[in-house]
Design a binder for these strands. Sequence first.
DNA 1: CGATTTTTGAGGTGCGTACCTCAATTTGAT
DNA 2: ATCAAATTGAGGTACGCACCTCAAAAATCG
Lengths: 338, 338
Amino acid sequence: MRPTTKDLAIAAGVSLATVDRVLNDRSGVRKDTVERVNQAIEKLGFIRNLVAANLARGKDYRFLFLLPRGGDQFLAGVVARITEANLAFAPEMMRAEVRHIHDSDPHQIANLLGRLDAEQVDGVAIMAPEFPQVRDAMARLAERGIATVSFISGQISSAPEDFVGIDNRAAGATAGRLMGRFAPSVAGKILVVAETMHARDSLERRLGFDEVIHADYPHLTVLPSLETYGDPERSARIIRASFASHAGIAGVYVLGPEARVPLEIVTAQPTRAAIIAHERTPFTEAALLSGQIDALITQDPGHLVRSVMRILRARCDRREILASQEKIRIEIFIKENL
Amino acid sequence: MRPTTKDLAIAAGVSLATVDRVLNDRSGVRKDTVERVNQAIEKLGFIRNLVAANLARGKDYRFLFLLPRGGDQFLAGVVARITEANLAFAPEMMRAEVRHIHDSDPHQIANLLGRLDAEQVDGVAIMAPEFPQVRDAMARLAERGIATVSFISGQISSAPEDFVGIDNRAAGATAGRLMGRFAPSVAGKILVVAETMHARDSLERRLGFDEVIHADYPHLTVLPSLETYGDPERSARIIRASFASHAGIAGVYVLGPEARVPLEIVTAQPTRAAIIAHERTPFTEAALLSGQIDALITQDPGHLVRSVMRILRARCDRREILASQEKIRIEIFIKENL
DNA sequence: CGATTTTTGAGGTGCGTACCTCAATTTGAT
DNA sequence: ATCAAATTGAGGTACGCACCTCAAAAATCG
């Protein structure tokens, strides 16, 4: 049987009240008494029963996910996973809410963060581009005892352990390697389609992509990124224009999760180009299965969401996390392993 | 505040004792009373507080992993993850032990299973080849109230929900697709190296591999599988012999997790062959990074282990699992996304 | 040294549930 | 209608811990 606080008290030769004071960091205990208790903890291998502690404390964990408004199928998937995680974690007294933000309005975001109350929220996960105001607001949250992580698209300054998501440079490099191997080994051009190159993740992906192509596939030329700004018509126009002005397009790399328009245009071309896209959505899955897309680079939204919740909770409990469980993998999907 | 059993009792117009009987599936409650309580659960959105329940029950969960004796680096990784999961799940009162078995001795395995006591073990995860005796022993365990799953290499008869691991046919198909795309697009031969083709997973992988190659890469010829029987010398001998007798080997597919010997020999050949192997070990990782292996098809041992523990626990609690979390993915690793 | 402050002990209550007992009530069968 | 059986209620104890109070003991100070 696992030792309890009672066993601890006996082993340390103190009362339950003192054990409690030490365990919960309360004042009014002499240093050497604290030491005695800590030694007993060591000796017995006492592990605090968090389950019972939280029950006694009546504690529950309330987390907040701040996501960009609107959004693509990938984001919709993230929201769906949050709902799912909410059910799955409910027996463990954890709850998550989604709030949408204008991800281009740092002032609004900082404002929202500033108004959060530690009484009502235990942790926040933010998906927003890099803004100094947001970063500062996050720091102030931490001071007020609210745990924060940024996820999917990270704040540049955030320490690795404060970021839940993939290494986008590596993801781009992965795309680059696959492109190099999937495209024909003769001279050709690669089209890169992004929603915007202002986002850090797009930049990093492109960077990683270029690195690999330049180093190992010099016969391929990567064209300047096309920016769709989320506008399907603009998207169609500029991609068509690219095909018109460039002969020999051997591959298309779609940086963002909206692959529909690029795909339609590419498949309408007379010559087949290798297509690599990001994120698993109903649309990209179907395209992969039908052979229109050659490979998908993804991160598992379910894993992301659960990881965020476990990490935030560990922060609240001042516990260590199981690093290997929280590492978000860069997944490669082809038709066969979908 | 979340509704408690007390709220439930009031809402259903019954006593706490009756609520308890319904929640814990005890006998002696009329059908319509059960119905009333269930309706109240619906209406209030009652979620049982597992934390409190387990505290009251004083229950802990003891699980047993039965793994083949000896074993490769992959197995060692699995064991390491079990140790790790043991720590991570300790606050939730779950413990796992490893016991090694002779995976070719069904009698010993069945015997061991037969002696397990429901007082001491709540669930068992078995990694062993298909044997009728083992299957029967597992069925008897279930009758005695001990949860079972087979993992990694499944019992053929086990329902999908009783198996934790990847679809090996799909994994082989994935390897096939990558081989098709990585190998040169001229006529060539593919070497397949397995520990033994008696194991079901090897057979299935080979099957999936062949399917893809035959369908889409007819210029590639897949040679009969070489069986190493886990013997490095034999392994070296037969692989060398293959290279000697076959010209134009364009690729090597290593079915099992022991890639060392095949790799050494292949890289010693004058012509480069594409190499695809299974499982992530210190050795295969290094080989992938150094460019000796082209791709790895893997399943995450950490995920496997945690999944087993969550599933076994859900069985014990007669709870549903979160299917999306427990689906083990067929991962593809290349140098860039390791 | 006594007076004051600090430290410690003893004990209680409650968190939400499990599980038990015993008596009271209802139901079903005859 | 009667009796046995099935169902339900009331109430208690326990799980391991947090948090509280009050008094007793010990340490510290002038």
